[in-house]
Design a protein around this nucleic acid. Structure first.
Lengths: 191, 191
DNA sequence: TGATTTTGAGGACATTTGTCCTTTTATAAT
DNA sequence: ATTATAAAAGGACAAATGTCCTCAAAATCA
């Protein structure tokens, strides 16, 4: 609960009172490893703050290959954002890769917060802006870095994720094949 | 002017009066081919609606290679978004690749709009959400498509851009080398 | 117009990455 | 513990892409 308050304070200058007034709009939810927060094809109706744990999001590309879109970690928000924004069926699935504890708000409640509170309008915009910045960074990495550079970056920025995930999932996140990732790992272990 | 109103109406239900009250916050600006809207290293203080024309945005990657980040076309917004959001020096430059006509709002005026009008809060959030969705799509293309697929997609989605831009710029946008793009073009012309 | 510079096409070869497969190792189930 | 199953490593070869370079065409400038 306190972690979430800290998270929000770092986004906008929300007062303790505003925060307390808000909490009733959220519900706690726990996922076991392997559980889904959101499944493909359903309209995503939640945004969740990850108190503890990790989720992987994935979709299927044009060639029906499963692609990891993102690893979502503690102290961040997670959702199938496009589906949530447009309230259209989600092409993303969100699955817990370990036991996970969430604070969840649904679409209606968030709209209520937007309607009644300026600070929440600001939070909503700022969250979208930040998600944009993260995605822009990801795109530039995909555009400009080699397989090895991308893997080393992930290793540096999200070492826990590398630990907890399968080679397959990491490879598709980096836009390379298992074979390539295997080569890279060997190279690294030898140097 | 009317194009801009249409653009906004499609984002949020802004009334004619609200729109008229807003217009004084914007200024018209014209760029000649080659002119910069924003230069690297400066804090970006504007968001612009492109009434007519095209801009290219670019940056230099870790290896000091110039990379085209985006081709911005008529009836869309353009800005160095990250720099604008964080009010930090821009790594992007925005340059007109043909004579271009803009409607520009600066940072202070936008903050004023946010402060005084709920509809502008909604517009601000919705714009950020849309930019996110565009960037997410771009990332998935970069992650999953071959050089040829990416080029064919650009050709389909932004044929004018392909016409107006150099091979170099298109290649870096697609994350490939000139040589690769040259091969693809030959292949296409032969089929 | 003629000279100069920039841009695009493409040859030759190197490197990276992918495909298909087998072997090895780790994990789970009985 | 033993067997069955799934995941990772890696061999052999193919395809895609990059590097470096030259030449021709196009654009620009004097």
């Amino acid at each position: 609960m306190d972690k979430f308050k800290q998270f929000l304070k770092q986004i906008a200058s929300i007062t303790d009172k505003e925060f307390d007034d808000t909490l009733s709009y959220f519900v706690e939810q726990n996922l076991k490893k392997g559980d889904f927060l959101i499944k493909q094809g359903k309209v995503c109706r939640q945004i969740a703050f990850i108190v503890k744990g990790t989720l992987r999001t994935y979709y299927f590309d044009d060639k029906a290959k499963e692609i990891t879109a993102c690893f979502c970690t503690e102290n961040n928000l997670t959702t199938s954002y496009k589906s949530f924004i447009l309230q259209e069926p989600s092409n993303l699935a969100l699955q817990a890769i370990e036991d996970t504890q969430l604070l969840v708000i649904d679409y209606e409640n968030l709209q209520k917060l937007y309607a009644k509170s300026t600070i929440w309008q600001t939070i909503g915009r700022t969250v979208a802006e930040r998600e944009y910045i993260v995605m822009e960074k990801y795109a530039s990495v995909l555009n400009n870095e080699s397989a090895k550079e991308k893997y080393l970056r992930l290793l540096k920025e999200q070492p826990n994720v590398v630990q907890k995930s399968s080679v397959e999932d990491i490879a598709s996140y980096l836009g390379v094949t298992r074979r390539t990732l295997s080569r890279i790992r060997k190279e690294i272990s030898q140097s």
